[in-house]
Simulated assay, not measured.
Amino acid sequence: MARRTKILATVGPSSDDPRVLAEMIEAGVDVFRIGLAHGSLSDAVQRYRMIREVAKASGKSIGILADLPGPKVRIGQLPDGGVSLQVGATIELVPGKETSTATSLGVDYLDLLRDVQPGDSVALGDGTVRLTICSVDAESAKAEVASGGAIQGRPGLHIPSDRLGLTTPTAEDLYKLDAFVEEGVDMIALSFVRSAHDVRRVG
Rank of each mutant, 00 (worst) to 15 (best):
R74S: 04
R194H: 09
F180W: 08
Q46P: 00
D111V: 01
D126P: 04
S191M: 02
G88Q: 04
D137S: 11
V185W: 01
V145M: 06
G39Q: 06
R194P: 04
K72E: 11
V136W: 12
S195L: 01
K56L: 12
P79C: 08
V129Q: 13
A9K: 14
R163S: 12
S15P: 10
A55D: 11
P18N: 03
G148Q: 08
P118C: 00
T103W: 03
A146K: 14
A37V: 02
D80F: 01
G203I: 13
A138R: 15
L110N: 04
V83T: 02
S161H: 14
M1S: 14
Q117A: 15
T128C: 07
A146F: 12
D162C: 08
G63Y: 07
D198F: 06
I64W: 05
Q152M: 01
A9R: 14
S161C: 00
V107G: 02
T170Y: 14
A44Y: 01
S15N: 11
R200F: 00
P71N: 02
L36N: 03
V29I: 12
A66F: 10
S135F: 10
T99V: 10
S147W: 12
D17S: 12
R194L: 06
T128Y: 14
I159Y: 02
A27S: 13
D43T: 07
E183S: 01
L68Q: 08
P95H: 02
S14D: 06
L177K: 05
D17Y: 01
R201N: 04
D178A: 14
T168M: 03
P69Y: 02
L131W: 13
D126F: 04
L105M: 12
D80Q: 13
G76P: 02
D120Q: 09
T90F: 13
C134A: 15
E172Y: 08
R200N: 14
S100M: 05
E26S: 13
T132H: 04
S14E: 06
I7E: 13
D108M: 01
D198R: 08
A2W: 02
L21Q: 15
S161F: 14
D30R: 08
S15M: 04
S121A: 14
V73W: 01
E144F: 11
E172P: 04
D120A: 10
L166G: 13
R74K: 06
Q152P: 03
V145F: 13
P155G: 02
I151L: 05
R4L: 15
V202Q: 07
I188Y: 05
R49P: 07
E92I: 01
R74C: 06
I75M: 03
L68S: 08
R154E: 07
G28V: 04
F180Q: 07
P69M: 02
S100N: 01
G81M: 09
L113D: 09
A143K: 00
G127H: 09
P118Q: 07
V94A: 05
T167H: 12
V136G: 11
P18K: 03
D126A: 13
K176T: 09
I34D: 03
T101R: 00
L21T: 12
S84E: 15
Y175D: 14
T5F: 00
L110P: 03
L65W: 07
R49L: 06
L8E: 08
I151R: 02
V116F: 00
P155R: 00
D80P: 05
G153K: 03
A22E: 15
S100V: 04
G70F: 00
H158G: 00
E172H: 12
E26A: 12
